[in-house]
Amino acid sequence: MSRKLFASSRNLPILVTLGLFIVMFGLGSIAFPGFFSIQNFLNLFIDNSYLLILAVGMTFVIISGGIDLSVGSMLALSGMVSASLLEKAHMSPLFVIPIVLLMGTALGLFMGYLIQAFDLPPFIITLAGLYLARGLCYVVSLFTISVKNNFFQAAAHAQVNIIGTNFLSPGALIAIGVVLIGFFVSRYTKFGRTVYAIGGSEQSALLMGLPVARTKIATYALSGFCSALGGIVFTFYTLSGYGLNGKGMELDTIAAVVIGGTLLTGGVGNLFGTLLGVLVYGIIQVLIVFQGTLNSWWTRIVIGFLVFVFCVLQRLFEARKGATLGRNTAREPAKAAAGR
């Protein structure tokens, strides 16, 4: 019986998120005329395309039991570098985009190496990465660089019709593509499954002979790649590079991932949850805009509150898991009680 209970509770966070999204969309549709439309739904993808891409990379890192705080400023740096190479060095997007992606991957790789090889806390290492990327933005330029490159202009304004005249932007399509690829990787590759194994128990993963070191470093490289790609998509969206772009976005990303049902302690989560988390994040913003009198900063408070609710939910699940494994972990509560 307890097995069935747990089986359902495993997907419960995602169901809660899905329910939350439907309720919010429904409430919005009832309360505000003009809220309910397919385009309004598709706009969630368009307006949050870059966030979705960051969240995919972040999901891998968090499932492996780590965290990457550098994604927001990496997004800004990618935008800055793209803009600068395009507008100041007049390079072709054909070169700019691979260069930027490579740069992001390399920085992620470097941080992953530090974390894995020297057993350092991911939190601090990537926080320094946040600083580095943010500072480097201003090394590139202290001011906004607007992007006039034809390809980027085209990407920014293009509309791809999906259902009738309802459309998605190229950025949104890229984001959806990233989610799908991410889902395949997480579910159908050994790399993806090893990420889950490490998050479940790094010690066990090692003893099972899984390539722990390589995989851990690769998740940070992947997250670096995603933030760089997010930066490019963000540039499609805003057509400019600026050092303050994506400020605090690392937390929006983490929040979206957590709301999507991924455990911050690692091992549990999936990319459709993350997609839902991003949609919930998006719809909160839209609702507050439609509501009109509340200032947009309520979004952050609501997001903070949701993170709190989901974290408490997760603690409850852990407690229940602890209960089913009670006999094995009889001594654990004593250690946990001390608050580590």
Partner: peptide
């Protein structure tokens, strides 16, 4: 992290 996110909003 929770207040980190919500604090600025508050």
């Amino acid at each position: 992290l929770i207040l980190f996110v919500a604090g600025r909003g508050i």
